[in-house]
């Protein structure tokens, strides 16, 4: 069995030598097959070791570094973005708070001023009223006083006129009563 396989291979090799010679295909000439395989293995192993041990780790490192750098930068940018957004929110909150505070202050001031104005007005009004009352009383007093003095003058004049006319002393009290009733009738309506 083994022998027959070997003969077959030998036959194929022999045949291929003939084919190679006939068709001119150097690829089928087994003369340098072993040499080519040997050198291929040597060269390829050397290349593989160089690539696997030196070059690929280097390229990998370079690409990895770049990806890491990009990722770090993106993270940093996101972080900064978040910070700035927080700041903006804080700023807007501050503005809103201050706006409310301002409105409150304005309202309070308005109210206070209103109150103040009202108070002052009231005080002034009361004062004016007092002054008016006082003046009224004074006027009334003056009126009363003047009435009394008018009655006195009228009594005096009346008694003097009657005395001069009649040459008689008249009862002072009756004169007073007459003047009083007359003045009440005439001047009283004026008071």
């Amino acid at each position: 069995m083994k022998l027959s396989i070997f003969t077959l291979i030998a036959l194929i090799l022999g045949q291929s030598r003939i084919i190679a010679a006939e068709a001119g295909m150097p690829q089928l000439n087994p003369e340098y097959w072993l040499s080519q395989s040997f050198w291929l293995v040597i060269v390829f192993i050397a290349l593989y070791v160089l690539i696997a041990k030196f070059f690929i780790p280097k390229i990998k490192l370079s690409i990895g570094d770049r990806e890491r750098k990009i990722k770090d930068d993106l993270d940093e940018a996101n972080k900064l973005k978040k910070i700035s957004e927080d700041k903006i929110a804080e700023y807007e909150k501050l503005i809103l708070e201050n706006k409310n505070k301002l409105i409150k202050i304005s309202n309070d001031t308005k109210k206070k001023l209103d109150l103040d104005i009202q108070k002052k007005r009231k005080a002034i009004e009361t004062q004016i009223q007092n002054e008016l009352d006082k003046a009224q009383i004074e006027i009334n007093n003056l009126k009363k006083e003047s009435l009394t003095s008018i009655e006195q003058v009228a009594e005096d004049i009346a008694s003097k006129v009657v005395e001069d006319l009649t040459n008689e002393k008249i009862n002072q009290s009756s004169v007073k009563a007459i003047v009083s009733s007359t003045s009440k009738k005439r001047i009283g309506s004026l008071l």
Partner: peptide, 29 residues
């Protein structure tokens, strides 16, 4: 017969081109 042939030479040339290229392309990261 493991003689060095023109095929071996061109394998070597190709491998050298790759090595030189990769050397210079990874020299300055």
């Amino acid at each position: 017969d493991l003689s060095f042939t023109n095929a071996s030479l061109f394998m070597l040339i190709s491998a050298s081109i790759i090595t030189v290229f990769l050397y210079f392309s990874t020299k300055n990261k």
